[in-house]
Design a protein around this nucleic acid. Sequence first.
DNA 1: CAGCATCCATGACGATACTG
DNA 2: CAGTATCGTCATGGATGCTG
Lengths: 139, 139
Amino acid sequence: MQQERTLSIPGNFGETRRLQPDVFARDCPTRQLLDRVADKWSVLILLTLGSESMRFNGLKRRIQGVSQKMLSQTLRSLERDGLVTRRIEPAVPVIVIYTITPLGRGLLGALQSMIDWAEACMIEVAAAQNDYDKRQASV
Amino acid sequence: MQQERTLSIPGNFGETRRLQPDVFARDCPTRQLLDRVADKWSVLILLTLGSESMRFNGLKRRIQGVSQKMLSQTLRSLERDGLVTRRIEPAVPVIVIYTITPLGRGLLGALQSMIDWAEACMIEVAAAQNDYDKRQASV
DNA sequence: CAGCATCCATGACGATACTG
DNA sequence: CAGTATCGTCATGGATGCTG
C-alpha cells in the first residue's frame, strides 16, 4: 500500500490542509528535517550505527574528534526523530546501547553515497580550492 | 583507468604519506568536505542548479527563506570547491549565471535521495518527535 | 561507563543599508 | 541585478568539572 505523501496540518479555522512536502518551501517540515540530517555528526553517527549497534564511548572512539557534548546532543536529536533508539541495560556500571531504527536505516544509502562521493572527489576538490585561491590572490 | 583513492600529503620530514581517505579520521580532508556538503543551503543550491542553471535572484526566489548573505556565501564556497561555476555576462545591469559542474553533478544522486527520504518520512519523524516529547513531559 | 552542567569564545546568521 | 559591508544576536561547540 502506497502511502500518500501529504501532511495534515490543522489550519487557523480547525480545518485540515493537505500539504505537499516541498523542501524548497520555507515552512515545510522537511526543511527542519533536512537541517538535522544534513549535519556532520548526524551523518557520522548514523553511518556508524548502520554497521553495528554501539555504546556511547564506542561511538566516541569511532568518530574521531567529536566531543561528548556534541555526541550526546546529536544522539538525543536522532532519538527524538526516531532514527535511533537508546537501550539501557541494568548493570553496574550501566550499559547504554544505541541502535539505528528501520526509519533511520532508510537514510543510510543516501548518506553512504555522500561519503563515497566525498572520499572519491576530495583530491579534485582540493585542486579546485587551490586554483580558486590562486586566482583570488592574483586579483 | 581506475584512480587510486589515496592522497599525497607532505609529512613532517618531507616524505609523502599515502592516506586512505577516511571520513571517520579527525584530520581527513573528507571531514571538511562533508561539513561543507552536509549543509542545508548547499544541498538546496546544488539540487536547484542540478535541474537548471540559474541567476542569483532566481536562486533566491526558488530557495525560500535563504538570506542573500547566506546565498552568496554558500555560492562562493561551492565555487571554490569546484562544484559550481559562476559566469558573468557583460550587460547592464550585469547578468550572473550559476551552473553546476560535472564534479558537483556527481553528488546530486545522493542529495536527491536525502530529500526523497525526508519528504517520504517527515510524517513518521513528526510522530516520533511527538512521542518523545510526550514521554519526556511525563518524566 | 555514560553522561549532565557550566563557562566561554568563536562563528553562524539575519536585518539593514549601501554600491556599480 | 547582483551583490558587499556592517552590526547585533543567538547558537555552535570545545573545555572543564562533576555525578551515579
